[in-house]
Design a protein around this nucleic acid. Structure first.
Length: 434
RNA sequence: GGAGAGAUGGCUGAGUGGCCUAAAGCGCAGGUUUGCUAAACCUGUGAAGGAGCAAUCCUUCCGAGGGUUCGAAUCCCUCUCUCUCCGCCA
């Protein structure tokens, strides 16, 4: 969340940065400042009364010690009324604080000054491209046709098991998926300096709040419960991304400066309800309710945040380069950026069978926005506690990578040539119907 | 799921209603002494919030949330987590 002190001291700056997102959040700043003002006023009042009560209680203790019970009783009578006032003012102060915090949790991060101002995806500047669209001397097939022909995915039975948007990978399809996961984890741990972790696939509400998924996007998550017990519903949620558990690993801790930077890499399946997205690209595996992803998370000193973001993007790009896939890197404009992010690069890979680019990675620096939400700090050499920058990036999302891979490397005979980097993992040079 | 024991500062651990403003030790930082290292001694060492130009002062925090009381680390209730044993289970 945003620093309340920044909002107090530079409300115009905050309003301006929020306005750049185009979501209208700047209109809530005055409401927030009102609640904050109210809270501080009540706090000053109630703390004065508490100080008074503490003084009198101490005197009562001294009187009791000297066995001056009549005196003590008189003072007790005096403070009873004080206690009632404190209870009431405490309640009001807590209510103002709760309202203030609720509002704070619903305000998005401020875009970094270097982020292009724009309204939608159409305004996202192109940063760079790598490779070229492959030329085919035949009409390239869609991954749907390739998957059915090569029996990589059984779309019909996947839907039978769990509904549309769930995939049943079969035979070489399943092996390709597993090969990609291992390839990605090995690449990032061996070549890019990340530490592998394997998190729980369900997380608490606090973790979802910590990364900014909740409360605003709660309808996108799958909630789980124990058995038929409805009272447990809403305490645990299926991961929308491994960012949810991994970024929260050190929540509510104070790290030592020398522990930073921390770089984690994790595979997990990702579950997204995609509420309200029905009918949008529902066929195939481009938008599904469950997909695999290898996620990269960094916790770094603020001074390193943006240099680390560039490296994060480069780490994700390496994946596509090694797999021989054409892609472009774009920067998300203020109107297209995610809730928690201050600056985001997306990587879009070319899918010849679709005739379009698919988003396979989103790399963001959330600055201290998430660290505040999860109360994660680090202690500097001088003993000061600061919020670190937290970054996340996909390295990369698998279903779409799978699509780009089979569509790009498909052959005239309907087989798929496996890129050399992946061959040791798959144990085959070519995927055929055999 | 059943039974029992626990949760106190960075760590260990004392504290059973008011000198708790949380003992003591360890660790850490600074200092003194000292050929070096080490040791000894001295001093300091949690977090959040609020008031103030500032020095400084105030409030809250002993797993979490309620309650009793003039006053709670301490008494009562609920919950969470950890450990031990039993049962079930991949």
């Amino acid at each position: 969340m945003l620093d309340i002190k920044l909002i107090r001291e530079q409300p115009d700056l905050v309003r301006g940065r929020l306005a750049a997102r185009g979501a209208g959040d700047e209109s809530r700043v005055d409401e927030l400042l009102g609640l904050d003002e109210q809270r501080r006023k009540l706090l000053a009042e109630v703390e004065g009364l508490k100080a008074q009560r503490n003084r009198v209680s101490k005197e009562i203790g001294a009187l009791m010690g000297r066995k001056q019970f009549t005196e003590a009783d008189a003072r007790k009578q005096e403070t009873r009324d004080l206690g009632d006032q404190i209870t009431e003012l405490d309640r009001q102060a807590a209510a103002a604080e709760t309202a203030r915090n609720e509002l704070l949790l619903r305000l998005p991060n401020l875009p970094h000054p270097t982020v292009a101002v724009g309204a939608s995806a159409a305004d996202n500047p192109l940063v760079r491209t790598w490779g070229e669209k492959p030329a085919f001397d035949f009409t390239p097939k869609s991954h749907i046709d390739l998957c059915e022909h090569l029996k990589l995915i059984d779309f019909a039975r996947g839907a039978k098991l769990s509904g549309s948007g769930f995939l049943l990978y079969t035979n070489w399809g399943a092996r390709l998926e597993r090969a990609l996961i291992n390839f990605l984890l090995d690449l990032h741990t061996r070549e890019h300096g990340y530490t592998e972790v394997s998190p729980p696939y369900v997380v608490s509400r606090d973790c979802m709040v910590g990364v900014g998924q909740f409360p605003k996007f709660a309808d996108q998550a799958y909630a789980v419960r124990e058995g038929e017990d409805n009272t447990t519903l809403g305490s645990l949620y299926l991961l929308p991304t491994a960012e949810a558990p991994v970024a929260n690993i050190h929540r509510e801790e104070i790290l030592a400066a020398k522990q930073l930077p921390i770089r984690y890499c994790a595979y997990s399946p990702c579950f997204r309800a995609e509420a309200g997205a029905a009918g949008v690209g529902t066929r195939g595996m481009i938008r599904v309710h469950q997909f695999d992803k290898v996620e990269l998370i960094k916790i770094v000193e603020p001074e390193q945040g943006y240099a680390e973001l560039e490296r994060l993007v480069a780490n994700a790009e390496t994946v596509l380069q090694l797999l021989g896939l054409h892609y472009k890197v774009i920067q998300l404009c203020t109107g297209d950026m995610g809730f928690a992010s201050a600056k985001t690069y997306d990587i879009e890979v070319w899918a010849p069978g679709q005739g379009q680019y698919l988003e396979v990675s989103s790399c963001s620096n959330c600055e201290d926005y998430q660290a505040r939400r999860m109360n994660l700090r680090y202690k500097t050499e001088t003993g000061e506690n600061r919020f670190p920058h937290i970054l996340n990036g996909s390295g990369t999302a698998l279903a779409r990578l799978f699509v780009a891979l089979v569509e790009t490397h498909q052959q005239p005979d309907g087989t798929v040539l496996v890129p050399p980097a992946l061959r040791p993992y798959l144990g085959a040079e070519r995927i055929t119907t055999a």
